[in-house]
Design a protein around this nucleic acid. Structure first.
Lengths: 222, 222
DNA sequence: ACCTGAACACCGTTCAAGT
DNA sequence: ACCTGAACACCGTTCAAGT
């Protein structure tokens, strides 16, 4: 009865920052953002609550590390992709798809400008803009425009994807909204916009925005 | 000793949704986002915790209502502003300044696509795009591009403004980052971008982004 | 109809104690 | 060096009871 090997064995293999981040991603993917609690994480790793804090500064650090893990895969892939135009497009699409698969990344990207994942994206964009011939202060202007567009879209789509389980509810809401706008404003200006709002495809619209941005860069470069 | 008029008088004036939202804005402005708790709010209004839930669905509803209050002032002002180009520019600037004054609005805008403040901005943009001559599905594409750029920038600047009290820390961080990038990549491509990142002015860069999108929209309209 | 405040079911983080 | 888990100081929300 006093043998030290009991039903709850002390961890055989050592914990590591990587294992913790990996477990966090699993929980986030399976059950969403508000399911990632220290308690859920430590029980998933079958360890004590405090153990995490030995490897990770806190919840913010953990979330940032998890997002960086997902984003790194995207930026690494987009690195050597032919002409800068299509490299920027495929980087954008990669991020979009990553958020589609991991909605929590979308909210996380908008949360903190100096987190690793955000800086990674900035850097990736900066390199391609150079290839595009953008120089000097125009680099920060153009990079900020594209990056912030991506972050804004990411957050909005993430919220949509989070709610996608009951897509019927979303549909109902947008329908109601379109009706409300139509009744409020006599003009067909708003009515048309409301119809578009209801019927658009996220992915297609996201890419259209990237193209608008690229057109803008080139128009101003002349 | 049994008189009902004691040291804690039951509220003389009735609570109202407006009063609650107003109090929430005060707390958010003075002490930031994480200071807005039900406890802080009810003690500020000197009422019981549950009283709020009679007028407001919960914390999400309250935050959305507070943001809408701030944004409405901006969109109302931008409504009749000459040509659509400068109307869109002054709308954007109005939002930027509002976030500068109320950083919590920036984070809130990125949180939920179907909240009143977001829809208000969408609508405002949509009307101006029509004036610009944008029609059909291009409306949603262009509107989404500009709106999501604004939301993304809003969130990033909000985080910056939140941290602005110790601007020295931000400076130090960006310096360190620029150095790290410079050492990591031999090329001056990254070095230049890093320098720009450190020295840029938020407001100016934000406006440059708006112009890039406007240029893009016009280039594609032809 | 509207408000009160105790009760409930949670959080993240710290830290003395263990191995 | 690394882990454990109780303790601490909080949360948002509900709801029976009051006025």
């Amino acid at each position: 009865m006093t043998t030290p090997a009991t039903h709850r064995p002390r961890r055989a293999d050592a914990l590591s920052r990587e294992r913790i981040v990996e477990a966090a991603i699993e929980i986030l993917d399976r059950s969403g953002e508000q399911a990632l609690t220290v308690r859920a994480l430590t029980s998933h790793l079958s360890t004590g609550r405090g153990a995490i804090y030995y490897r990770v500064a806190g919840m913010d650090d953990l979330l940032a590390a998890a997002a960086d893990e997902v984003i790194r895969a995207v930026t690494d892939r987009a690195a050597g992709d032919g002409d800068p135009d299509s490299a920027l497009r495929s980087l954008s699409l990669g991020i979009f798809d990553a958020i589609d698969a991991h909605p929590w990344v979308g909210s996380q990207l908008a949360r903190e400008p100096l987190q690793p994942a955000v800086l990674r994206i900035w850097k990736c964009i900066g390199v391609q803009l150079w290839e595009l011939g953008v120089r000097g202060s125009a680099t920060a202007d153009a990079g900020g425009a594209l990056a912030n567009y991506i972050f804004g879209s990411a957050a909005q789509f993430a919220a949509g994807a989070r709610r996608a389980r009951n897509q019927a509810e979303r549909r109902r809401y947008l329908d109601a909204l379109a009706t409300a706008w139509t009744e409020q404003d006599a003009g067909h200006i708003v009515r048309e916009a409301a119809a578009e709002l209801r019927d658009h495809d996220d992915r297609h619209q996201f890419l259209a925005g990237v193209d608008i941005f690229l057109s803008g860069i080139k128009a101003r470069a002349k």
